[in-house]
Nucleic acid binder design. Structure first.
Lengths: 407, 407
DNA sequence: GTGTCGGCCGTCTGCCGACAA
DNA sequence: TTGTCGGCAGACGGCCGACAC
């Protein structure tokens, strides 16, 4: 593996660590931020280094359950000292990609804040966290059987080629050029880009099949080309959601993994020390580390009630976003036994569209945009649901909402 | 994936569970015991279902450290309630192989015994655990560059072909036959076995390259053919020790994994319930679940002292065993802070041969055979080192050694 | 506009004995 | 006894426009 070129070493705009150290396993601890975000999808944004975040062990547990393909065993207790959400200082965030599969993930170093530290609101960012910079000049295509066959090359959609690839010299017959693209591991791939056929079309020929077999791509997977401001071509992949591609880890039982995440968080809370978590944006059902500002705004400054209409963002097949509409049908604890008084997925919802089976029946307050105008059903509930901070848990200790820099 | 044929469904002689259920991940929860043991190596034997075993969290921790390629962080404390060894009932053992890499591992269900239960010695097996049945009619060859090249087939060592493969019909010219072999996942592989060339030799031609590329074998890896009593041909692989083939898991941080194994064992001890561990014989430096009988014999019925000579078994390149000699240089705790009074690797040793750098400088009592005759150095230590059971830990509660069925 | 196919050529796979270690 | 090679024949990779949806 090669060290990344200087052009890939810049501090990314959203303040993600990019020290480009080589880890003990020979894995780079940083990689191109734009490409990482393009692979992670348009809805994923990482909180800024140095900011305050809220960590949800419940959400972390959901990610582990998905990764190990095993639900949390009912006999695993909660740690009595571990609240459903921890306010933490985010000391570090690094972006990674699996060397085998190119699956993207982020590593975060969190430190739970003591009640004392939580009183000091000076660290709270005034803004709600500028969204991570997602690339604008890119395209994403789902591979067809012809694209992945050994019989031919890759058919580039016309608009994509014209927008993302350097212009061809049409004085040549046929017009053609060599493209160099770098992947998440900074490996370079070379393709012949040619405009030929009847009718004329853009194709990648020589070099394409090497890429397909090296990445083990099959029809249904997606590739992603980015043309960035430095005039570099970047190349990422997104695998189709094959059921259970993730192998059951033979390192630790899923039960032990659940114990592990709880114990690590509880120990860090008790000793005021740091702990490390991994976030897999494409495997994980919902973000379980969110900015404190976003959390406070959603929980303390948003009026929600049963019957209220809302909308929520989802990713489309083509890696863009669309909004789905729904109605709040209830507000309650997802797991009243182990995680009472948690805001994690506390909102029960119904979706407007009949394909709603794919979407979660429970969401968290910060995931939705309530529509305060034109409620579908008049509600007898008070317009603002008061959810007091659960007693005995880390709290703002009397801090007034206005102290948090919001209004 | 196919269900295994009836011939593979037998209860293995050493009492390993072989229910052949299909797990939720589509993975078979059992597989051929002979083949598993052949791949695991001649020194690996699994304790019997229903027997009592001793579980060492320290050893488990070592395996996790190897698998994650990260040493245990010094700030991870021990659980005060967790002793360095747990006496457990072994409720279940199942053999597995990774679907991607064919790496073998075992899953064990353990239940810590309460002091009450430990008093009941009736479950103690009288024998020291008959060693697991390892195949006799097999061969193991390390692949050469020619074996893995696309240019040709596999050169079968003559003695191996004559011992393990069905005899050829030498009236044909050239003598040839079709071989069908099943791997750990019960997939069938077809090879043309031919005896040709000048001088004559045994070769596998058609079908071989498909196998090599499917298993992603490279020169230095080994293949293993078994001819079992049911006249079936079995086929396994052992990859060369490529440094860090194991990818750093992006599921849980290594710290959290260490917390997890400790918390799971501590919770099971406190609630008298079961927990599940994975044992990777080829990754793990030493077995960390051993039969209680073996433990008691080594710790209470073996006289060891500094200066004493001993020998210990190691696996050779060709999958057979040889003994190395050494001298005991000290007896002390490996980790006096977190695991005091532990028998895990309590014996410091020096090895006779100069290539000793590869071998552990610390071993456990049950791994070695002390030579009571002809000690190299006269020792001023008492001939028998008394290591009383550490106070405050699970114990035999006054049980006399003779109660354990030894003498 | 783009997915798939038949046609065609060139490279590489894969079977053979020669030869040497 | 067995690892590697040159030789050779055939299979498949891979580039092309035709054609259809």
């Amino acid at each position: 593996m090669r060290l990344s070129s200087a052009g890939f070493n810049h501090q990314s705009p959203e303040g993600i660590a990019c020290g480009c150290l080589i880890g003990s396993a020979g894995e780079k601890t940083c990689l191109n931020s734009e490409l990482w975000h393009a692979c992670a999808g348009p809805l994923v944004s990482l909180p800024s280094i140095g900011s305050r975040v809220v960590y949800f062990p419940q959400g972390h547990s959901e990610q582990v359950a998905v990764s190990t393909n095993k639900e949390v065993d009912a006999h695993i207790p909660n740690y009595p000292s571990l609240p459903p959400q921890l306010i933490c200082q985010l000391h570090n965030v690094t972006m990674h990609a699996d060397l085998e599969t190119d699956e993207v993930y982020a590593q975060m170093t969190l430190q739970p804040l003591s009640p004392e530290e939580q009183k000091d609101a000076s660290f709270l960012p005034a803004d709600l966290g500028a969204p991570s910079k997602h690339p604008t000049n890119y395209f994403c295509k789902t591979l067809t059987a012809s694209d992945t066959s050994t019989h031919g090359g890759f058919s580039v959609p016309r608009r994509a080629a014209e927008k993302v690839f350097p212009p061809l010299d049409f004085s040549q017959q046929p017009p053609a050029q060599e493209l160099l693209a770098r992947d998440l591991h900074d490996n370079e791939w070379k393709f012949k880009h040619i405009f030929r056929g009847q009718p004329k079309r853009h194709l990648l020929t020589t070099g394409w099949s090497v890429f397909v077999s090296a990445k083990r791509l099959i029809a249904g997977d997606s590739v992603l080309f980015i043309w960035n401001e430095k005039n570099q071509l970047l190349l990422g992949i997104r695998r189709a959601n094959r059921p259970q591609t993730m192998m059951p880890s033979s390192v630790l039982s899923s039960d032990s993994m659940h114990f592990g995440l709880l114990a690590a968080a509880a120990h860090a809370t008790a000793t005021n020390s740091r702990f490390i978590i991994f976030y897999n944006p494409r495997a994980c059902p919902s973000e379980f580390v969110i900015s404190l500002a976003k959390y406070v705004k959603a929980v303390y400054h948003t009026r929600v009630s049963v019957g209220m209409r809302f909308r929520m963002l989802f990713e489309t097949e083509e890696s863009s976003v669309r909004r789905y509409m729904g109605t709040i049908t209830g507000i309650s604890d997802l797991d009243p036994v182990r995680w009472s008084n948690s805001h994690w997925r506390s909102v029960k919802v119904g979706w407007d569209e009949s394909t709603a089976g794919e979407r979660q029946p429970r969401v968290s307050l910060w995931e939705i945009e309530p529509l305060t105008t034109f409620p579908m059903y008049p509600s007898s509930f008070p317009p603002r649901l008061k959810r007091p901070w659960p007693p005995g848990l880390p709290s703002f200790n009397g801090m007034k909402e206005d102290d948090l820099g919001m209004n």
